[in-house]
Design a protein around this nucleic acid. Structure first.
Lengths: 222, 222
DNA sequence: GGGCGCGACGGTACTGAGTTCCGTGTCAGG
DNA sequence: CCTGACACGGAACTCAGTACCGTCGCGCCC
């Protein structure tokens, strides 16, 4: 029933556009009553994101499945990675939806509220992991936003390639930037970020010779 | 006329709720025709964010008013700071709207699309400033998202205080975290982050003497 | 001064999303 | 055969948003 409605909707949307397709058109093509549409989808927009609830639940489950021994930032990056892989499971559907949301303002707004829930899930996890830390909530919110932005960047690049590109490499590269910025270097050779970049953090009070020593060591010239 | 409609709307919203207030109620109280409402506000939600367009335009103008000599990340942080100060100009109105958006899902979704436009404005500016840089677009998007998240964090904290707290200090502190994470130390004594930390990023291919030069300069020992 | 265009406002009627209420079939178990 | 739970369908309704048109007030030009 759900699947029949989604199938009918995505047969009509490409040919006459989202806004020009009424719910009556969809239910007529699916051969079901109008009332049944709103039983399965609270609004017309929801039919465009039919598996969003399940995907969000999967990501949340993944977050809390790992123990507290795994590094938090790495965990949320892996969660974002997981979401992108879910998108990549149905390339044609994802690309079709991308073209819809790109040109229908109403759907773009709805997509924002969808993405927002993912971001809040990530932030909630990080807030719990950062509990007690100085500015833990702020740090959690900022990192969650950065992770989502990196994920979206990679996702859109992949969608623009019509699902032909390498989604994994792209998202790992993007998330590598975030982990770099927030103090968790990607594992060597994992393909996150360019491998010829090294970050040194120093306190101003430290003696210069110690900083140079660390620097040479980090650059492999010691 | 606009002001009359906004005033009427915000007299009705608190007493009977946003969704229970129809557009007809608003225009009846304002003493104008229903048609005129939609002349000034494309949708019912827009009356809740009456000065959003102006605020966005002001922020964009501020971004491009500074020359290319000012550091990009600092510039977008200052732009976010400017937005928060605009909110702080009308504390009672901002707090009232906060309570509305907090409990009406439809308004929260609309607010997301509003915030999204600010984020895209910041990202657009950063993309231009980072043009030609390796992963410039990705970096721009991630930093814009982080700045917006930090701004929102500070804004919500201030709104929860019913506009009584110190908005400037809060937002400076939050944005300091972002500037720390992305390699731009906050101005000395501004209260963002620990002031004795400096970050140097180097590519492995760079000559060591150049790196040490940058390092000495950053540490203020050159 | 008298048409005259123009822009702002108001009213009517319409479309379509979303809701409410209710009738109908269907299948289980007693 | 009766009955209660449940899924579906349909009619009628509310309200946001749009299209169309009529009206008023204003300056402007002949």
């Amino acid at each position: 029933m759900r699947d029949a409605l989604v199938a009918a909707a995505f047969r009509l949307f490409p040919e006459r556009g989202y806004e020009q397709t009424t719910v009556d058109d969809i239910v007529a093509l699916a051969g079901v009553g109008r009332r049944s549409f709103f039983r399965y989808f609270p609004s017309k927009e929801d039919v465009v994101f039919p598996d969003h609830e399940r995907c969000l639940a999967d990501m949340t489950a993944f977050l809390y499945a790992g123990g507290d021994d795994v590094e938090p930032v790495r965990r949320v990056c892996d969660a974002a990675r997981l979401v992108l892989l879910m998108y990549a499971e149905n390339p044609t559907f994802s690309v079709q939806r991308y073209h819809l949301t790109k040109q229908v303002p109403g759907l773009r707004a709805y997509e924002l509220s969808v993405v927002w829930r993912y971001e809040r899930a990530l932030a909630g996890y990080l807030r719990a992991r950062f509990a007690g830390l100085r500015d833990g909530i702020l740090r959690a919110d900022v990192i969650a936003a950065a992770v989502v932005a990196a994920h979206n960047n990679a996702l859109r690049a992949w969608l623009r390639s019509d699902g032909e590109g390498d989604a994994e490499t792209t998202v790992d590269h993007a998330l590598g930037h975030v982990r770099e910025a927030f103090g968790t270097a990607p594992a060597p050779g994992v393909s996150g970020g360019p491998e010829d970049v090294v970050v040194i953090v120093s306190r101003r009070g430290a003696p210069l010779w110690r900083v140079v020593q660390e620097l040479e060591s980090a650059l492999g010239r010691g």
